[in-house]
């Protein structure tokens, strides 16, 4: 057996930092868009969603990685789904108990974490072939990469659409036309299509800075 790897060796840190940029789950691997967009009209649900997904990815990665040598290959998808579904039920119950209003706002999208492609994607591509600790870091990294995009999208949609950030008013009331000012919110930003366009623009910005990612 080779020498024990340090807990935070360079390779392990790379597992954490790569998904934030050059292998971001949303903008590069195209995973987990399903639930990413619907919850970003405001920042609070976006942050709760990001934390929930990070917790589920990290734990599911660890569990599958521990079981990786005992799962028969033919039924691995069912096993993965059961592990994920169990974790999502836990997350759902915790959200209902502690942040009930946000959980109502997220509605079906908590349940949809089960079919979030990030989970299956990371389990298949990483956890089935790596040790638990690395899988854990990979899960945290990918959850953070997903969360970063969610929060950026949520920030712009809430700022431009409702004039607030995380529920706090940023643009003063007196600026609004209804109060005799000059400013009106862009109501489009709250609506679903603008989430897609915002992500499109994020991808544009990211790829023009990181030219390796450009598709032909």
């Amino acid at each position: 057996m080779s020498e024990r790897e340090a807990l935070f060796s360079k390779k392990n840190l790379k597992l954490l930092s790569d998904p934030l940029n050059s292998s971001n789950p949303i903008t590069v691997q195209v995973l987990g868009i399903c639930s990413a967009l619907a919850v970003t009209a405001q920042m609070k649900p976006a942050i709760v969603m990001a934390l929930s997904v990070t917790a589920v990815v990290a734990l599911a990665n660890v569990i599958i990685s521990l079981l990786r040598n005992t799962i028969p290959n033919r039924i691995r998808i069912i096993v993965q789904l059961v592990v994920i579904a169990a974790l999502v039920i836990l997350v759902d119950q915790v959200l209902k108990a502690y942040v009930y209003d946000v959980s109502k706002q997220l509605s079906v999208f908590v349940g949809l974490i089960i079919t979030n492609c990030i989970l299956m994607g990371r389990l298949e591509a990483f956890a089935l072939g790596n040790k638990p600790w690395q899988s854990f870091l990979d899960g945290i990294g990918n959850g953070a990469g997903y969360g970063a995009i969610l929060i950026i999208v949520g920030f712009f949609r809430e700022l431009l659409g409702s004039g607030s950030i995380y529920g706090f008013r940023v643009i003063p009331e007196s600026w609004y036309i209804t109060h005799g000012g000059f400013y009106a919110n862009n109501g489009m930003m709250i609506l679903p299509p603008m989430a897609l366009i915002t992500i499109g623009i994020i991808i544009w910005v990211q790829r023009s800075r990181n030219r390796k990612l450009i598709e032909n």
């Binding site: 299509p193 897609l196 366009i197 992500i199 499109g200 450009i214 598709e215």
Partner: peptide, 23 residues
């Protein structure tokens, strides 16, 4: 299409525009 927007980026923006149409 501008190079950085090719593929995924433009697909997102088109979907957004289709969504606006469906609105």
């Amino acid at each position: 299409i501008p190079a950085p927007l090719r593929g995924l980026g433009i697909a997102f923006i088109i979907t957004g525009l289709m969504g606006i149409a469906f609105m």
